[in-house]
Design a protein around this nucleic acid. Structure first.
Lengths: 199, 199
DNA sequence: CGCTGATCGGAACGCACCGTTTCGATGCTG
DNA sequence: CAGCATCGAAACGGTGCGTTCCGATCAGCG
């Protein structure tokens, strides 16, 4: 009876792209419906109609999978604002991040990735090597532009990026991803006016 | 043979303070030796010579236990610096927090508390109601003093506290609790010079 | 004085998940 | 055509969660 739903199987001695897509889609679904609390490899495998060994073959850590889900999400691709003023750029950037976290599984994925990194050494490595550099690109981009305009001391870029990232993460981790424009604008102005040179 | 180690038991219809102390001490030990990765209620119960139901009776969540361990730690009681200059106060405060996290189980406890809050609704409530207000007291104290001296706009206190906390937490969560004086000083000067008033 | 009732440690429960192993079937690749 | 990496399924041992039962303990109350 060939009317039955086709089961995905091996396509030979190479990775099956359909399986890869199904796993990522399933992971995304689980995060969207149940958040990180409902995220488990078993559940993802069930939904994807995939075997657990298949998942572990390609994503050795849960953190690996979470990081890939994060960036696979279109909403998580943050546009780099260019208004010519640091305060407004930072505010727009913050609203983009928080909005993406609110409206897509990316927020749950990052919450999970950070949680994972607190108990799992390998997850911390993923966070450092795979996630952080790519994630913070827009932040460093905006600050770099501001430095070229002279709005920011080049030596301040790194710590400003850390302060900005810390603010966003704190909001995410404490469940405050709402669009709090007053707070965001104030933080953006604070950072744009800050100077770290020794006096 | 009364030479055997006395087993703790019920002392009647009231909480046994010896049990409470033994559980907190055991939790502290586990965190110190194995970090949050090795932290489990079963293990704490084993070490404390206590029953799991006893632990769950008094600490309904793992988060409850972690929060209490955090504050029970002497090292986690951060002195409030008073040098009369915001930048130096913030720097001293940051070094106190990071030093406490580095040298005591408090850091592991907070990492666990934050991780827990990402998957557990009840833990998020503990974080908000039990942990955050008490934890951020020194931060708000230093900023409040600075406001009274006129170094800080009162309307900026809240967001400066969030930026400062976010920075510390980011460092903790990414495993950077080392005493990076250059970075800490620069962050302190950045925050002390920031102004959020609308222009 | 004796009863009530909350507490204690211990043991075991059902459930869920982790990460791994084994299996037979599949179909490129050389 | 034969070798071999891949696939899904099933099951494994181990661990932890949060709960339930048990018998023993003893302060507080009538």
């Amino acid at each position: 009876m060939p009317g039955e739903k086709d089961r995905r199987r091996s396509i030979g001695a190479r990775r099956n792209p359909a399986t890869e897509a199904a796993v990522l889609a399933a992971a995304r679904e689980v995060l969207a419906e149940a958040g990180y609390a409902g995220f488990s490899v078993d559940e993802v495998a069930r939904r994807a109609g995939a075997g657990k060994p298949t998942i572990y073959r390609w994503w050795p850590n849960r953190a690996d999978l979470l990081a890939e889900v994060y960036f696979a999400d279109r909403a998580a691709r943050i546009p780099e604002p260019e208004t010519g003023r640091l305060a407004t750029d930072l505010a727009a950037l913050a609203r983009s991040y928080l909005g993406a976290w609110r409206g897509s599984p990316a927020g749950a994925a990052l919450r999970g990735l950070l949680a994972e990194a607190q108990a799992n050494e390998a997850a911390l490595v993923v966070l450092w090597e795979r996630f952080l550099p790519r994630w913070s690109e827009p932040v460093r981009g905006v600050l770099g532009e501001a430095a070229r305009r002279g709005e920011v001391e080049p030596g301040d870029i790194e710590m400003l990026a850390e302060l900005f990232s810390g603010f966003l993460w704190l909001r995410l981790l404490t469940g405050q991803t709402d669009d709090d424009r007053a707070a965001i604008d104030r933080v953006a102005r604070l950072l744009a006016s800050a100077r770290g040179r020794k006096v």
